[in-house]
Computed example of a mutant assay.
Amino acid sequence: MTRAAIRALLDEGKLYAAHMAGLDNTTGNTLVATHAAPTEAAPGTGQWIELSVDSADIAPNAVALGDPAKTVGDALRDVSWNRIGGFQTDYDVWRALFTVSNKVGIMELNRPEDIEWNPRDPSGTPRLYVAFTNHTGQTALDQGGAVFDPATHATQSPKRTDAVGSIFALEESDPANPGASTEFLYFEVWHGSKGQGDFDASCPDNLLLDRDGGVWFGTDGNFGVASHADAFYYLDLDPAHRAGQPGVTQPSFGKAFRVVGLPSDAEATGPSFTPDMGTIFMSVQHPGENAYSTWPKGDASLSSVIAVTFLPE
């Protein structure tokens, strides 16, 4: 694409929010029906909800608020729907998307930090990956998508306890024509952990997809959660590496491999490959934020950009 074409991507079109129906509002990462994380074998089903004052989609909280036929457009223009004021134009909508999502009952997620479309996914089906860093605060909505009464929010709203984060995958109902899909399946492909073992990591942040469809991620929170450095990881999602596959004696499917460890209390952000995949550039952000660091020159800590080059075998 040309620079002009890239800049024009958002000049026209429609804006949608991913509503992960069936997700447990008290956890943000398990299903109400199973009390467990959604898996590839037992996924959740979500919908793309058009956010527009002309949207004919049914508001996710329409049933809970007593008007099953209430459209998103009608709900957004309604000056009292779900205890939130009205939005008269799409320009008003675009300026307050989190509030708009709350108004129509979109399921609150566990702080999505990055999202990447993977047309060459190793599963064989294109997927959309989302990194959920963590969520340890109270929610604005109840399970039905209704805003808690401000007078009782502090005592009634659930406080989520996800300190380690996760990575989810979304598969469109029409993978060959994803822009036309109105529904998707969603499931967890990796869950953070607090340990200090070889495959422990927490708080995924930036995602990176390589030219072969491989999934990589940086973290922002390892240091505070598990007292070891944040890092950059490769997530093995190759189905050939599952237990029971030919030649597999030590299954690595679903495990995160640490590739680059960062200085004290720094975040790995903005990763990018060179075209030949021989070098990864990434930023070392806020080293020494809450713990002493002398990165990178041995004196005061400074953010920086590094390049990691893989040597040929």
Rank of each mutant, 00 (worst) to 15 (best):
D74V: 03
S80D: 11
R83Q: 15
V53I: 15
D57I: 10
I84L: 15
V72T: 04
V53E: 10
V72R: 06
K70P: 01
D54N: 14
A64F: 11
D78P: 07
T71H: 13
A56W: 00
A62D: 02
D67S: 09
N61R: 11
T71F: 05
N82T: 02
G86S: 04
V72P: 08
T71A: 07
V53H: 09
D57A: 03
L65W: 01
G73S: 13
D74I: 02
N61G: 09
P68T: 12
I84P: 08
P68S: 08
T71G: 08
N82V: 01
D54W: 01
G85Q: 05
G86K: 09
G85R: 11
V63I: 12
A56E: 11
A59E: 03
S55K: 03
I84K: 11
G73N: 14
A56V: 04
N61I: 04
V63D: 12
N61F: 07
R77I: 03
V79M: 05
A64S: 15
G73F: 02
T71N: 03
D78E: 08
W81L: 04
P60S: 13
G85I: 00
A75T: 04
L76Q: 06
L65K: 14
G85N: 10
A64L: 12
V79Y: 04
A69G: 11
I58W: 02
N82Q: 12
D57T: 08
D78S: 14
S80A: 14
K70R: 15
S55T: 10
R83K: 14
S80R: 09
V79S: 15
K70D: 11
S55Q: 04
A69L: 11
G73M: 07
W81H: 05
A69M: 12
N61Q: 13
D54T: 08
D67C: 00
P60Y: 08
I58D: 00
G86V: 07
A75M: 06
W81S: 02
L65T: 05
R83G: 06
L65I: 02
A75F: 01
A59D: 01
P60R: 13
R77L: 06
P60I: 07
A56N: 08
D74W: 00
V72M: 06
N82Y: 06
G86R: 04
S80P: 00
R77K: 15
N61Y: 10
L65Q: 12
W81Q: 05
P68I: 10
R77T: 10
D74R: 03
L76T: 07
V79N: 14
V72Q: 10
G86A: 10
N82K: 06
S55L: 01
T71V: 03
A64E: 13
S80V: 06
P68M: 14
G86H: 06
A64Q: 15
G86N: 03
K70F: 14
P68Y: 10
I58G: 03
A75Q: 04
G66W: 11
I84N: 01
D74F: 01
I84D: 00
A56I: 00
R77N: 03
D74Q: 15
